[in-house]
């Protein structure tokens, strides 16, 4: 059995999650995604695992494509909250595993799937309520910027692009 373990939480919960997964699936081949700064601390517990970096090398899309090619049987993801945004908590939903299990702080498991919103919407709402208003605004601004904002910018950046492409520096030679 091939398991992708997304444990980008703090070190202690990641350790507990790893033990939990090992207990539930003895003998499984585990590809563990942990934070860079926890790699040394978790090294003994990660023995036998294929330890991966939590930073995508070569672009996010390529990272997800590579994950999907691996055809994991199970993806286990720690949904533990925290101020820091952890994109890998969302990547688990699109990594192409046959089943995705989210585990919260109390080690409660729930099977989730991207296309079945009722499996994750409750958790998402609970988390959203804890997020500061400015964080939500920033997320909304980021969404706008990446979509409508980009289209608007493409139009009003056109004169600058043309000026740069076809403009000439004045001849300053005496």
């Amino acid at each position: 059995m091939k398991i992708a373990l997304f444990a980008t939480t703090e070190a202690a919960p990641a350790l507990a999650l790893l033990a939990h997964v090992r207990q539930r699936h003895p003998g499984a081949a585990i590809a563990a995604f942990v934070r860079d700064e926890h790699r040394d601390e978790l090294a003994p517990a990660l023995h036998g695992c294929d330890v991966r970096r939590d930073k995508p090398a070569g672009g996010r899309a390529a990272f997800v494509r590579a994950l999907r090619r691996e055809r994991f049987d199970l993806a286990v993801v720690a949904w533990h909250g925290g101020e820091r945004f952890q994109p890998l908590r969302l990547v688990a939903l699109v990594c192409g595993a046959r089943a995705v299990v989210a585990v919260d702080e109390a080690m409660r498991e729930r099977q989730v799937a991207l296309l079945r919103p009722w499996t994750w919407a409750g958790h998402a709402l609970r988390r959203l309520a804890q997020v500061r208003a400015v964080t939500l605004l920033r997320a909304a601004a980021a969404c706008y910027r990446a979509t409508i904002g980009a289209v608007v910018a493409a139009v009003w950046l056109l004169p600058s692009a043309l000026r740069w492409r076809f403009g000439r520096a004045p001849d300053r030679r005496p």
Binding site: R138, R145, G149, A150
Partner: peptide
């Protein structure tokens, strides 16, 4: 810390 830069 603020949101903004909506149009790049």
């Amino acid at each position: 810390p603020l949101p903004g830069n909506l149009h790049h």
